[in-house]
């Protein structure tokens, strides 16, 4: 019951925040100096025929997109449509009434799966690394892992991807692993959302920062947990060292990791905006950047909406996960 109240409250807060984000986006897209029609003008040319076509188009767009309505009405109408999961047509294809919905449905899974794969890599590698560093505290292994995680945390994913790809490419060439090691996995794909293999490098590059964060947090948190009395109890039961760490010390140590995971996963989803074009992934990020460059206002608004809402929902899910991992945490602790 308490939990239900918490979830409802948070969902309401998310709705309000997302509404703010969408309204702000609407407002900003209105003041954009070079809008869609300005760009069209460049394309049609300044002759009479071009002007006529442009005026005709502008008239049509006014009708389809209700451009003359006041801002609040536009935002309100948008939300009514969101309820039905219908985002309407885009500027580019005004005659396909469900174009944006189709685009979102097709591209959102790409972005989400790359982000989740990255987070999966981050956890699968970061957690053992962190535990290992904690158990080998102040040895060269520890120092190496700590510095590596520093690099992972500081260097942005696109730079990391480039450097890793180059490294592997040189490595592969020099050591004659040749064809058995498919270079295509590492190279930036030439075209399209080919196969899952194309997601390997982006996922690694996107996962590096959270992996580093996870490893650092796990390390310090395992060290702290190992000092606690219940670890002594576990030892008093006769459990082996590894079992004590894995069964008893690890789970309480995960709590601070979950705290960093929410923002990190959010960052990975929004960060898709930066990396998808580079990797030629057909996800929400490249959709957003394309829409921005073409000043396709409905598409910009919807991709902003989806990205912002996803980030906030991810944070809610992570908070719920928090309560699963640590039963002492109750909804009221999370505010």
């Amino acid at each position: 019951m308490e939990l239900l109240k918490f979830v409802v409250k948070r969902l309401l807060a998310i709705v309000v925040s997302v509404a703010c984000v969408v309204a702000l986006t609407f407002a900003m897209m209105r003041v954009v100096p070079s809008d869609y029609f300005a760009q069209m003008e460049l394309r049609y040319g300044a002759n009479t025929a071009g002007k006529q076509m442009l005026d005709q188009q502008r008239e049509e767009y006014r009708r389809i997109f209700h451009l003359d309505d006041p801002l609040w009405k536009q935002v309100g109408r948008y939300f009514v449509r969101v309820m039905k999961w219908d985002f309407g047509p885009s500027y580019k294809e005004p005659n396909e009434p469900h174009k944006i919905t189709e685009l979102v449905n097709a591209k959102f899974p790409v972005t989400l799966s790359v982000a989740l794969a990255g987070m999966g890599i981050a956890l699968l590698v970061g957690v053992p690394l962190g535990v290992f560093a904690a158990l080998r505290r102040n040895t060269w292994v520890d120092y190496l892992l700590t510095s590596a995680s520093m690099v992972g945390q500081v260097v942005p994913p696109y730079v990391l991807a480039v450097l890793l790809t180059l490294f592997f490419a040189v490595f592969v060439r020099n050591f004659q692993i040749g064809d058995s090691f498919p270079l295509a996995w590492l190279a930036l794909p030439s075209e399209g959302w080919g196969s899952w293999k194309n997601a390997v490098m982006p996922a690694i590059a996107l996962g590096a920062a959270p992996m580093a964060a996870v490893a650092r947090y796990i390390r310090s948190s395992v060290l702290e947990t190992l000092d606690q009395d219940f670890v002594r109890t576990a030892l008093s039961k006769g459990l082996g060292r590894l079992r004590v760490v894995v069964r008893h010390a690890l789970r309480p140590s995960l709590v601070p990791v979950v705290t960093v995971m929410g923002p990190q996963l959010g960052y990975m989803i929004v960060g898709s905006v930066l990396v998808e074009d580079l990797f030629r992934l057909q996800g929400l990020g490249s959709l957003f950047v394309g829409a921005i460059n073409e000043r396709d206002v409905p598409l910009v608004i919807t991709s902003t909406f989806i990205l912002a809402a996803t980030v906030m929902l991810v944070n809610l899910v992570v908070d719920l996960l928090y309560m699963v991992i640590d039963p002492r945490i109750r909804p009221k602790d999370l505010g």
């Binding site: 219940f230 109890t233 008093s236």
Partner: peptide
């Protein structure tokens, strides 16, 4: 340990795994 020798500690809350 645990099998033939049992232990009871001072701080009962801290000595039990909270999760």
């Amino acid at each position: 340990r645990g099998r033939e020798i049992g232990f009871v500690f001072q701080n009962p809350l801290g000595s039990l795994n909270p999760v």
